[in-house]
Design a protein around this nucleic acid. Structure first.
Lengths: 174, 174, 174, 174
DNA sequence: TTTT
DNA sequence: TTTT
């Protein structure tokens, strides 16, 4: 539409382990079920109440899909940024259904693990020291591996996709 | 869930005039249909493509509902901030359906008109002079009218709810 | 300006305990020092690098100030939402200085504790069971305590300020 | 820090034309001065008040820099998404100063023109037809031009960097 | 310095 | 159904 923004920001916990599907192209697509909730005290009864909202997140972004696959699990607390998409489908009986999802497209979206210590079981020295389980705002996606990360002038070396992508193949990305 | 965030930010245009429903309590609930879209050039065909996403926005926030009712119309460009909620309902045939909406709860959410000149048709002197079609981050809601807007210390007079609430009763709030 | 948005979203850790100042009015104003950081692997050296950015957060919002005062401490991980404000001041030598802060005005902003277990030392049963250390998007501020939290129609009871405000006086708000 | 988020979202107007600097590498770096403001009615005096906040935005992202250079001008209304960075510098007298900016790093950030019709002066046919002055969430950056925009599976062709990057070289990107 |  |  020209001049539009479609952004969802969630901080919540995975209700179950990530679900990974493999596309024909070999790319992984990861689905997350994320719960957010609010609690309050009911004015009348004085009771504490809580309402949980479940969100369906779909990750097409390759880097983030890999990371989700490797490091997220049931209970993980994450920061997710994506866009809303509603798709139509038909159930077995031919009924039209609509599902709204938070989508992290290729080269788009962000996913950050917020648990104190969420890396791989063993927890490598890398991870322990290196710091940063912000596994990459995958905005960087698969940007040209030929592109040296010169950065933005006076900024210190910026976090480019290239380095993240490389990391994913040989060691822990955060 | 403790420590969760559920936030949607949209900038888009209304596909039709706002729909107003009156609750038993007399409160208005406003529904907006907002379009966001992205465009890109297809690599293969070289054609320009565009995909529009439609969002259903529900405003329970009283101040924002009034404002939406008065100043928004088909085509208006708005900034909306709310939270995702999915509700279950049954269609006429008893089929279970789910609808996901961006909800602006009472005292919650934001709604800002982004059109250059979007006030009421004639454009009142109030509006012309008053300035600001940022019709109030309705966070202020109907907070205590007994509360003087002393502000935050060194800040210049802050925009408090009180003043907004007052405005709503006697004149145009912006 | 009419139609403007000024929003900052941070997820980071406190570099030191909150600093509380008491205003003439008796209201508390809380300052937080929050660190965010990014890490990446340097293309040339192959080394892991990390850059930390420090943010100065000022909380005028009374509910959130109380909560920050009570439950945040050095190292706490928080989600903060506020607005950017730059103010001018003079140092001892009369030099003009500018400081940019993330401000949570009265009735505005959000503050959510993201640590797994961040409540008060003893940890009440309330807290343990009730869930929710999302201590209230303080949008609710001090909205009218005379206002029953009827909610937004079909929504389940919404989290209103009233209940939160009440909580703060007699028990743990989350 | 591991698990951090540093995000600024602004909707405001340019106080003056973009300032372009050319780096040694030939890359352009663009500075924007953006105003956001809030207005309210003073409780005591009954007067309308307004406070404007000025923001310094720095664009290192190459695509967005080009676009800012070409299409933004004094008065333009824009949506900007970047991150906070504070840098230290010395004025002529050797005094230490700090400046906080909203930075759009390479491959990062977003910039969307919100004016109804803000394209190039003459308004090319391309622009008129092409649609979309959402000039690309430059997340796409300069990602590999060898990467075909296959998209995210069932999604319709997604907006990939590739197409945007290509556009920038031969015609108007929106 | 913008915008309303 | 909007917008460009």
């Amino acid at each position: 539409m020209a001049g539009s923004v479609n952004k969802v920001i969630l901080v919540g916990n995975l209700g179950r382990d990530p679900e990974i599907r493999r596309m024909g192209s070999g790319d992984a697509v990861v689905n997350l079920n994320i719960a957010t909730s609010e609690s309050w005290r009911d004015k009348q009864s004085g009771e504490r109440k809580e309402k949980t909202e479940w969100h369906r997140v779909v990750i097409f972004n390759e880097n983030l899909a890999k990371i989700a696959e490797q490091y997220l699990k049931k209970g993980s607390k994450v920061y997710v940024e994506g866009q809303l998409q509603t798709r139509k489908w038909q159930d077995q009986s031919g009924q039209e259904k609509y599902t709204t999802e938070i989508v992290l497209q290729r080269f788009r979206g962000e996913l950050t693990l917020l648990d104190g210590r969420s890396g791989p079981g063993g927890d490598s020295e890398e991870y322990g020291q290196g710091g940063g389980n912000d596994f990459g705002r995958s905005d960087f996606g698969r940007s040209s591996p030929l592109e040296a990360p010169r950065g933005g002038g006076r900024q210190p070396a910026p976090a480019t996709t290239s380095s993240y992508a490389a990391d994913l193949d040989d060691d822990i990305p955060f």
